[in-house]
Design a protein around this nucleic acid. Structure first.
Lengths: 200, 200
DNA sequence: CCGCACCGTGCGTTATAGCGCACAAGTGAA
DNA sequence: TTCACTTGTGCGCTATAACGCACGGTGCGG
């Protein structure tokens, strides 16, 4: 825990600049003189809670917005998964027990097909298509998804992706695990799954 | 959304009396003079955030213990499609209590700047840049993110996005809520893109 | 009774938060 | 260029936060 003044300064500057407000306009909205706002932004003054409250209400944000409570979340590691036969998986968000989810960015080359063996019960996948189009199979039924579509899959069942089109398909894959379960790192799940080249 | 001073006074008095501390002892623990502590308890003085922080650390309680959590900011346009000043938001995954998350696809036109008002404590955002590049501000510091980057934000603090480049930026926004909280429908009020100055 | 220790509060002084105003630099139009 | 206007910052002044200290009040053991 450190002195809250620098954080207040930075937060105020961000809030004001993000709205494109000048000090004068911010002073009008908050009822605090623009000179004082400028000093607070530069960290030259530590405001009273009363003035900070006026600022918070003027900006229509909660008071806690200016206060450092929790430590900043850790830096994001990023790993590139294996690339097997036209399928490229990149880990966007590694699994964290706190949220019980992980997220991947997946590229599917034309003609590529990937089969994913079932995860544990209750696991749900979201496929968010970014670019191109692909087909997703759940419980043996293939459905097509285009850019902008979101497909929800019950990952407890066998499911697969394939790209029967001529252009590359890109999508994000959000995997949610129910309480108590973790992502099984066994081979055969999405990353290490059998990716078969060639037309389906 | 009232004056926070009476709440601070009552909280400090309760905290001190609950521990059986005298003003002198509290002054020794916090580093704030006992006269000032007495005045704060009686509501005759509105402390600065620096002093309140010293008091909070002296009592080993979070700063938020002294603050009445202000009323939620007014509900603004807020909609599935919020398109204001160069920002286009589409809901990919609406909030579900089961997963405690929601996900958006956001387009940021060149020059657009959007400020996201802080959510409740513990809320974490992931910004996954799909196309183009943008700048994200957290705690007053702008950092740039390019396509493929993932930025993790503590959404309890004020944060903002802007696109200072010439091409459109697209990103996915994953918002995780801790157990017990829900997405308070606060505004993602956007500042006028054109009114904003360029890169710092 | 008298110290004596500790409590909370009031007083005088200092540091500084906060305000109003003015100034230098920048911007755009005539 | 000049004029009108806005931006952010610096300066003087006032209000007050914050300090150190002392005073009246209270409980307790000589």
């Amino acid at each position: 825990m450190s002195d809250p003044t620098p954080h207040i300064a930075a937060t105020l500057k961000t809030l004001r600049q993000a709205r494109g407000w000048s000090l004068t306009r911010a002073a009008g909205a908050t009822g605090v003189s623009k000179a004082m706002l400028g000093q607070i932004e530069r960290g030259e003054s530590s405001p009273t809670v009363a003035t900070l409250w006026k600022i918070a209400t003027g900006f229509e944000v909660p008071l806690s917005a200016f206060l450092v409570e929790a430590a900043a979340p850790p830096v994001e590691p990023r790993a590139v998964f294996s690339d097997s036969a036209g399928m490229h998986v990149r880990v966007l968000i590694p699994f964290e027990p706190r949220w019980r989810l992980e997220m991947f960015a997946i590229d599917l080359e034309p003609g590529a097909c990937s089969e994913s063996s079932p995860h544990g019960p209750g696991v749900v996948e979201h496929v968010i298509v970014i670019e191109g189009a692909l087909e997703v199979a759940e419980a043996g039924r293939w459905q097509s998804a285009q850019a902008g579509d979101v497909v929800r899959l019950d990952a407890a069942q066998a499911h697969a992706y394939r790209n029967p089109h001529a252009t590359r398909a890109r999508f994000h894959n959000l995997v949610n695990y129910p309480t108590g379960t973790r992502p099984g790192r066994e081979a055969g799940s999405t990353g290490g799954g059998k990716a078969m080249a060639g037309a389906p």
